Amino acid sequence: MYFNGSWDAKFDPLYTKINTFHLINGGSVQTNFMASSEKQFIAVYDGFKVLKLPYKQGQDFRQFSFFIFLPDASNALPNLSMKMSSEPDFINRHIPTKKVLVGNFRIPKFKISMGIEFSKIFKNLGLVLPFTITGDLSEMVDSLEARQYYVSQIVHKCFIEVNEVGTEAAAASAAILRAGCAPPIGKPIDFVADHPFLFLIRDDRSGVVLFMGYLLDNLQSSS
């Protein structure tokens, strides 16, 4: 899977400044934050805010957007993540639908690259046969020697970069209605993503989530 999208409204690099990103453990790191004074799609809920950054629409009917689910507290990401995974249709019920005036608006530039080897996990769950020479993958492999094949590793790798222009993301594997509190009309909303948050890329028309991950800091991230 590969995704490369440009923001519908790009960020001006002149406004990108180094600022503090607060960590869950109470520490902090310095990183580049993008800023804007333009209206943004933001929804405010009890304990967290949601930002929607649309991408330019391509030649087909699909419309993609980047979302940040930002907890109010710097150590509240685990609770927000648990809430998201336990409540059906959580994402679709918390999508911003209107642009609002912004006050202090900053989101970090970041780049994540990681890989996970799943073979041991699958074996511990009892899926052992495909990893043995007697696994017989003849119905999956179009080859006369298919019976000699077996799975040696199952690897998932992903990459995502967010900057002033847009987002580039890739992932590959071998072997994702509670109403928001509408802010008073005309009152600017602050959205400062200076602590751990959850992000995702979503097809707005179908609701399908292409990529999802956490930004814990600009050195240690999970996706």
Rank of each mutant, 00 (worst) to 15 (best):
A9S: 14
A193I: 00
L77G: 02
N104M: 04
L51T: 03
C158L: 00
F122I: 02
E38I: 01
R93D: 15
C158Q: 03
T167F: 02
L219S: 13
G180K: 04
W7G: 07
Q59N: 12
I68M: 07
D89W: 03
G27C: 01
S206Q: 06
F191I: 01
P184G: 03
L137S: 09
I42D: 01
P184T: 07
D8F: 06
N79E: 13
I185D: 11
T132P: 02
V29N: 10
M212Q: 14
N104V: 02
T167Y: 03
G5N: 09
K109T: 06
T167N: 01
E87A: 07
Y149C: 12
A175R: 03
S152C: 12
P188A: 02
L23Y: 07
S221V: 00
A43N: 12
V100K: 08
R147Q: 11
G207A: 09
F41Y: 15
D136T: 01
A174P: 02
Y149S: 10
P196S: 13
K98H: 10
Y2N: 12
I68D: 02
L210K: 00
F67R: 00
V128C: 09
Y214K: 15
I185E: 14
G27H: 05
T97V: 09
K49D: 10
I112V: 14
I18V: 14
S28P: 00
F105N: 06
L80D: 03
V100C: 05
A76L: 03
M212E: 03
G166I: 08
L101V: 01
L70K: 09
D204G: 07
N163C: 09
G47K: 09
E168H: 01
T20K: 13
A146W: 08
F110D: 05
F33G: 05
R205Y: 09
F21R: 04
N218Y: 04
L210T: 01
L177V: 10
V165R: 10
S81Y: 07
M114V: 13
D60Y: 04
Y45S: 08
S86N: 10
R93M: 11
S221L: 08
F11Q: 06
S85Q: 13
D72G: 04
L177Q: 11
P196I: 06
T31A: 06
N4D: 14
I95H: 03
F211E: 06
L127A: 13
